Amino acid sequence: MVRIPDAKVALSTASVYPESTATAFEMAGRLGYDGVEVMVWTDPVSQDVEALRRLSDYHHVPILAIHAPCLLITQRVWSTDPWTKLQRARSAAERLGASTVVVHPPFRWQRQYSRDFVSGIWRMADETDVRFAVENMYPWRYRDREVLAYAPDWDVTKDDYRHFTVDLSHTATARADAMSMVDRMGDRLGHVHLADGNGSAKDEHLVPGRGNQPCAELLERLAGGSFDGHVVIEVNTRRAMSSAEREADLAEALAFTRLHLASSAGSAAASPVAGPAAESRAPLPRVSHGRPRIRRT
């Protein structure tokens, strides 16, 4: 007996770059994705709530998540103030019916923002039903040197957040144990960016199955547990020689994800990350969702 979990599989609009946000909606609808995650960036359509609503309605593709403009290239998108960016992301999510806002930890040079980030994310999460899911990042590398670009930390499990996003391309770049990180996230894992990587200093975002990350294992464990978030395909297709080649990569990623999300009904477990590979690990303590103890940096 096979059980298909409730987790929806979405396409990140970043996955069609350099094509447009509008193209992402079209491809997601044609390939059978359950929805999209909108990466808010320099494409004006990605910043326009009404334009996004029209695309969603036209293609019958729900918007499941908003990725706040946290990248270096989006420093001036939706204001230069990082808290204003998050407020606008929350407003967009509420107006579009998205359940999640994905946010990166601050850059280290954003000193005031990074000092207040943990408590500020809790404060914003208390004001809405939208999840603020903080995403794991990675140290930047130049030759044999590491540069710690994010604060409080690129490993977001070192701080206390209500919800996390795990990104498996980022665990590859960080050369971190992805499944151990997922274990530390426990029942606070609320969102997944599915991609692959080989441990390069570059953030590769390969199609799942083309690198060395435990993409299949993670999906199977999510399917066997109580994970109630979304799985988002966030891959790099900019080397595709044609739109048809890009679409083939996105179809392969969707097929891989649906295959490994299908699980034996008998393997279901209470933990959102439980599964056969987790049996040898010690049980996770349940994390309180009350007010956090903030680590000052």
Rank of each mutant, 00 (worst) to 15 (best):
D228F: 00
A68E: 12
V16S: 08
R162Q: 14
T13F: 02
D183I: 04
M137V: 11
S114L: 02
P44L: 04
Y142T: 11
V235W: 08
N236P: 15
E252F: 04
A282Y: 01
I66A: 07
I121N: 00
D6V: 15
V130T: 13
A195S: 14
C70H: 13
T297F: 06
R141W: 00
F227Y: 11
I121M: 02
H170T: 05
L31K: 12
H170W: 04
V9G: 10
D187N: 10
R90D: 07
E234C: 02
R258V: 01
R95F: 03
E19L: 10
G224L: 05
T297A: 07
A172I: 00
L218S: 04
W109V: 11
A244T: 09
G120S: 04
A240W: 02
M241F: 00
M124T: 02
R296C: 03
V231C: 10
V147Y: 14
S180W: 01
R108Q: 07
H230F: 14
I121C: 01
A51P: 11
T257M: 06
W109Q: 13
R3K: 11
D129H: 07
A22R: 13
P272M: 08
V9P: 09
A176D: 10
R53C: 11
P139S: 08
F25E: 10
A251H: 04
V192E: 00
R95S: 14
E245M: 06
F256W: 14
V156T: 13
L194I: 09
A201P: 07
G32F: 06
F227M: 05
R95C: 11
Y17E: 15
E247A: 04
P283K: 05
E127Y: 01
Q87C: 13
E146K: 13
D48I: 00
D43A: 04
D183L: 07
A277K: 11
R53K: 15
L72M: 13
P152D: 08
R291S: 15
D167E: 03
H193F: 00
L148C: 07
P18C: 03
R95V: 12
P44D: 06
A223G: 15
T74S: 12
A125K: 08
I66F: 09
L250D: 03
L219Y: 00
E247L: 03
L254A: 12
W41E: 14
R123E: 05
M1D: 10
R3V: 06
S200F: 01
L254K: 09
V147A: 15
S180K: 07
C215G: 07
M241V: 06
I73L: 08
G290E: 14
Y138R: 07
R90C: 13
V9M: 10
D177E: 05
V36R: 12
T157Y: 03
V287D: 12
G275S: 14
G29W: 01
R238W: 05
A178S: 14
H60G: 12
R145I: 06
V102Q: 03
G229F: 04
R115D: 09
E220D: 01
T42C: 02
I66W: 05
Y138Q: 09
P69F: 10
E204A: 04
V2T: 13
D34W: 05
A248V: 08
A255R: 10
E50R: 14
D116M: 03
P292M: 03
I73V: 11
P105R: 06
D167H: 03
E234N: 07
S15E: 05
G197F: 05
S226W: 03
T297H: 08
V182Q: 09
F256S: 12
